[in-house]
Amino acid sequence: MFRTPILAILVAMTVTPAMAQDVSLYAAGSLKAALTDVATTFTAATGTPVTTTFGPSGLMRERIEAGETAHVFASANMAHPQKLAEAGTGGPVQLFARNRLCALAQPKVTVSGETLLDVMLDKGTRLGTSTPGADPAGDYAMALFDKSGHAEALKDKALHLTGGPDSAQPPEGRNPYAWVMGGDKADVFLTYCTNAVLAQRELPELQIVQIPKALSVGADYGLTVLADAPEAAQALADFILSPEGQAVLAGYGFDTANGG
């Protein structure tokens, strides 16, 4: 557990009745490992339990709009929490982390950053992405295609294998991208670099290919505290944005909100 001034402040808050209520955190699937650690640390410091629900940001937003109880929403883009804020469901949206796209490739694929576009365009390459609209990772992949000069060809061939309401779900405990690639569903898959690292830990034979600068797409992550949330929800959001929370995110490969 971090032993820092912010946690000392949080510990002092455990005596207030407002902190007794559990905090419900809805967050992007790409944040699962990092924000699970953040939530565990927060609970240890404050005594306030945090229940976590992870999934594609667009689907998480829809569940909140449908009436599910969430107190803090951490999205893989700024647009989904901003939509809640504009509807009066959420408070101001704050940038708390950044990510970027990488490519996962099967070991049999001969590819580098310099040849990635040609490999993706090859008729024999099965190109996987997440589902646009439901999962910001899919939207970012479409933005990459738009920058390529071959958007129509790439969008036509892209297989939307994860992140959608009807996407096949991996077994409990499996990384979804390692599961997709291990099941030989794609030759190349575009996902967040943080996801690619976790997938490679599970399947070391997978290649991680850095996207060339000309095609690179950054991902801004935003969070909002939902209306009528307990006081502890704002404390959790503040902790995610604190140096200690940002250090946890950085440890999982995210760029922090201040660019560090």
Results as ranks from 00 to 15, higher is better:
Ala39Gln: 04
Lys185Val: 01
Thr194Tyr: 04
Ala232Tyr: 00
Asp22Gly: 10
Leu223Pro: 03
Ile6Cys: 14
Met181Glu: 07
Lys147Ser: 09
Gly218His: 11
Ala85Thr: 00
His160Ser: 09
Ser148Tyr: 08
Lys123Thr: 14
Thr129Tyr: 08
Gly128Val: 03
Leu206Asp: 05
Phe239Ala: 03
Leu35Asn: 04
Thr191Asn: 07
Leu10Val: 00
Ile64Cys: 01
Asp187Met: 02
Ala39Thr: 10
Asp166Gly: 10
Ala219Phe: 06
Ser167Asp: 02
Leu241Gln: 12
Thr52Trp: 07
Leu249Tyr: 04
Glu65Asn: 08
Gly113Leu: 08
Val23His: 03
Asp118Leu: 07
Ser57Asp: 11
Val188Asp: 01
Arg3Trp: 12
Gln82Glu: 14
Ser242Lys: 10
Pro17Leu: 12
Trp179Gly: 00
Glu86Met: 10
Leu190Ile: 06
Ala28Gln: 09
Thr52Ser: 13
Gly183Asn: 12
Gly259Ile: 00
Gly124Val: 12
Glu68Val: 05
Glu172Val: 13
Leu84Asn: 01
Ala66Leu: 12
Ala45Ser: 12
Tyr140Arg: 14
Asp139Ile: 01
Val225Thr: 01
Phe239Ser: 04
Ala103Glu: 02
Gly138Arg: 03
Gly67Ser: 10
Thr40Gly: 14
Gly173Val: 06
His71Asn: 14
Gly91Thr: 00
Asp228Trp: 05
Thr48Leu: 04
Asp228Ala: 10
Ala214Cys: 08
Met13Ala: 13
Leu116Tyr: 09
Pro17Glu: 15
Pro170Asp: 03
Met181Pro: 02
Ala8Ser: 15
Ile211Leu: 12
Pro107Leu: 09
Met120His: 07
Gln82Arg: 13
Pro171Gly: 08
Ser167Val: 01
Ala87Tyr: 09
Leu95Cys: 10
Leu203Tyr: 03
Asp187Asn: 09
Asp187Gln: 08
Thr46Gly: 05
Gly222Asn: 04
Leu241Pro: 06
Ala134Ile: 07
Leu121Ser: 07
Val197Glu: 13
Pro170Lys: 01
Thr14Trp: 08
Leu159Phe: 03
Gln82Asn: 13
Leu226Glu: 01
Thr36Ile: 06
Leu35Cys: 03
Leu226Trp: 00
Val50Leu: 06
Ala229Val: 03
Gln210Ile: 11
Asn77Val: 00
Ser30Lys: 09
Gly133Asp: 09
His160Glu: 12
Thr46Arg: 07
Ala227Ser: 15
Gly113Val: 03
Leu121Lys: 10
Phe189Trp: 06
Thr194Leu: 02
Tyr26His: 10
Leu59Arg: 11
Pro212Gly: 09
Glu86Ala: 15
His160Asn: 13
Val50Ser: 02
Thr110Leu: 12
Ala105Pro: 04
His71Phe: 09
Glu152His: 14
Glu62Tyr: 07
Gln82Phe: 06
Gln246Ala: 11
Ser148Asp: 03
Asp37Thr: 12
Ser75Glu: 08
Lys157Gln: 07
Cys102Ala: 15
Gly183Lys: 05
Ser57Met: 03
Leu198Thr: 14
Val23Lys: 00
Ala105Ser: 14
Ser30Tyr: 06
Val50Pro: 06
Val188Lys: 05
Ala103Val: 05
Ile211Trp: 09
Pro107Asn: 11
Tyr192Leu: 11
Thr110Ala: 13
Tyr192Trp: 11
Met181Ser: 05
Thr194His: 04
Leu190Phe: 07
Leu104Glu: 02
Ala141Tyr: 08
Gly245Leu: 02
Arg98Tyr: 15
Met1Pro: 15
Tyr177Ile: 04
Ala257Met: 14
